[in-house]
Design a protein around this nucleic acid. Sequence first.
DNA 1: TCATAAGCGAGACGGTACGTCGAGTCTTGCA
DNA 2: TGCAAGACTCGACGTACCGTCTCGCTTATGA
Lengths: 208, 208, 208, 208
Amino acid sequence: MSAERNSDVDDSTRAAAARRGRPRSERARRAVLAAARELLTDRGLPGLSVDDIASHAGVSKATIYRWWPTKAAVLMDAFTDAVEDRMTFPTGDDPLGRLREQLGRVARLMNEPAARRPFVALVAASQHDPELAAALRDRFVAGRRAAARELVIEAVRAGQLAAGTDPDTVLDMLYGALYYRLLVSGDPLTPDYPDHLVDTLGARPPVA
Amino acid sequence: MSAERNSDVDDSTRAAAARRGRPRSERARRAVLAAARELLTDRGLPGLSVDDIASHAGVSKATIYRWWPTKAAVLMDAFTDAVEDRMTFPTGDDPLGRLREQLGRVARLMNEPAARRPFVALVAASQHDPELAAALRDRFVAGRRAAARELVIEAVRAGQLAAGTDPDTVLDMLYGALYYRLLVSGDPLTPDYPDHLVDTLGARPPVA
Amino acid sequence: MSAERNSDVDDSTRAAAARRGRPRSERARRAVLAAARELLTDRGLPGLSVDDIASHAGVSKATIYRWWPTKAAVLMDAFTDAVEDRMTFPTGDDPLGRLREQLGRVARLMNEPAARRPFVALVAASQHDPELAAALRDRFVAGRRAAARELVIEAVRAGQLAAGTDPDTVLDMLYGALYYRLLVSGDPLTPDYPDHLVDTLGARPPVA
Amino acid sequence: MSAERNSDVDDSTRAAAARRGRPRSERARRAVLAAARELLTDRGLPGLSVDDIASHAGVSKATIYRWWPTKAAVLMDAFTDAVEDRMTFPTGDDPLGRLREQLGRVARLMNEPAARRPFVALVAASQHDPELAAALRDRFVAGRRAAARELVIEAVRAGQLAAGTDPDTVLDMLYGALYYRLLVSGDPLTPDYPDHLVDTLGARPPVA
DNA sequence: TCATAAGCGAGACGGTACGTCGAGTCTTGCA
DNA sequence: TGCAAGACTCGACGTACCGTCTCGCTTATGA
């Protein structure tokens, strides 16, 4: 989905097998991602043509197609490029509190058009592009979810959630609710919404 | 979003003000919706061109544009046309049980490609088409949700859910989880998944 | 090579099998040919892009490709369109004189850039486009040559050329010399050149 | 038009101003010309890209552009490289017979695809490339024509052609007829065609 | 002998044009 | 007035070449 700019993680290997030919232009890469981000924000995925990205980035179309198979792949890189430094997780020893905080961060992120719009466009595009769907899961969803899963397990262990709770189902419900508002109902992600969600997990009355 | 084919429900009025000229061809309408459904199922939204629908339906493109503003509008009609007879609600006097049943029906519906694919395509398209988003909410989501909302309220009243529970949040979580699997995680909607969801609502330990 | 606008020569047939759908736009056809002619004259075949023709003619590229398979095919039509009214033949009863006159007409035509440039471009393009080569022969060369052939035969019969002269060889030499200057040597086609050619036919000394 | 590999013919000068650095690779030069010849033969000028020549010759594109300004220039070199050893002239004391023989050699050369195709492509390309046209005349046409001109003059002097015959016109007609078949009519250059041409020069009946 | 200088293959770069496809619109003649 | 047929404009697509430009490496000369 993305360019192989990490294929040579091993520096010694890289030194040994020094690649020949003109190296990829980092300048072009950045310019493309920046242009994609910018244009998407005010035009949406359709209405965002590869020609536009190219001319706006001062880059040739061929260069884009050399490194990304698809308009959506560009967008995928542009998106992760923009949010990866905000993907840190809260620490502490109140698992449920940290889960709240993490949901809050996602909600806050998605309240910013510059992040929400590419994300929403990516989810939309991934509905008919299995590769993109996989990339989106691998590079954005999976990481956060794995961390959140740990929190749920800890919370169960700490007695903050009922014993026997299935962490995956809980996460489906919490993130699902978030995405439901984003993608279907259009209702806003208010700051206290994540708290409502966690609180509602105990929606069953105490079994007297 | 859809054609005005219900604007003259009153037969007497229709007879009186009978429009001049050739009446709309019901045959063409059906053929278009059928073709749209069929082509969508094996090609997805992109790869489904209006020309294709037209030629496949033995209809002229102009006829399509005369009655639908957009490819997505055709699809919207095709979808509701197909599922509207399955939108009945369970009756009975166990509110939570009926909620379970309703979620199960949605899950079963979405397990059929012929329904899931158009639905998923519509949600995707609605991300950059506000009119379509509104139509989707009004004509598919809203109805089911309103009915489900009643069930939640009844369940709270009956003590099956904790007092003070916000019905909208509960529904966001239940439907959100369903759609999350459909649109994001790709995990299957197993028959028992709805039950897991409702059960997990009581994920908080009894406040001792 | 050209559009089938003569495929319905039989009017009664046409009336009977009246073609349905929007008819081809004569306006577009003319505009394309005019634009091609004009642009070729100051740019040559390369440097004359289909996009240019289209935008210059106020016509969409698709329309051009609908009716002509190739840039060269457009040019072929543009050329014959322009010269067909100048393809009349001299009459009279001095066969050799009429042959002189006809060669003179070709020479004069090819002295005008507006005719020479498309012609030269077509000959060039036909070197790697057999269909174009055939079209060029059929629609431009063959007609003139057949008429000229008659003149040579008459001239032989009238004793103006030696008995037993092969008309095809004579014509190869006369037209060949013209085209040689045009395509290879670059020497000008002076007004008296055709006369020189005919006179030189008698380059052998009288067999004593 | 061609590489300057002869610009320093003077060995002493060369020795004195001996260029530093790695010398031009003769291997690369040969490989390029061979590849050009080969690819042209089965693809024609268009469809023969510089990238193709480069990769087929195992040479970098930069190397080609370092030594030839143009694809056509490469082809020009490739062609002359291939035919220059066949450009000898017949000797003897029958001028008209030697002219016949020379025309025959050209005809035989042009009957071989490996020579005809590049030649025809060069003539075509030279229609919109004045430099190439000049190079083609200087390096292929001019030499043969100058020699043929001498033969015509001798033939006139020897009484084999009518006194007062203009040698240039005669040559236009003879070579023109050859090229006419090659470039326009597509008729074959049969072995006896050159003889027909020379014989037809006397197509005028003896002035009684 | 080692620095300097040019040539080399590889291959990415900015451009330009290609020929195709889908979208909506328009124009026929017939029903 | 609806309709099928089908031509129209517009604009994006993804590809192919062009000619230029780094890279790191090789092969010469000459200080």
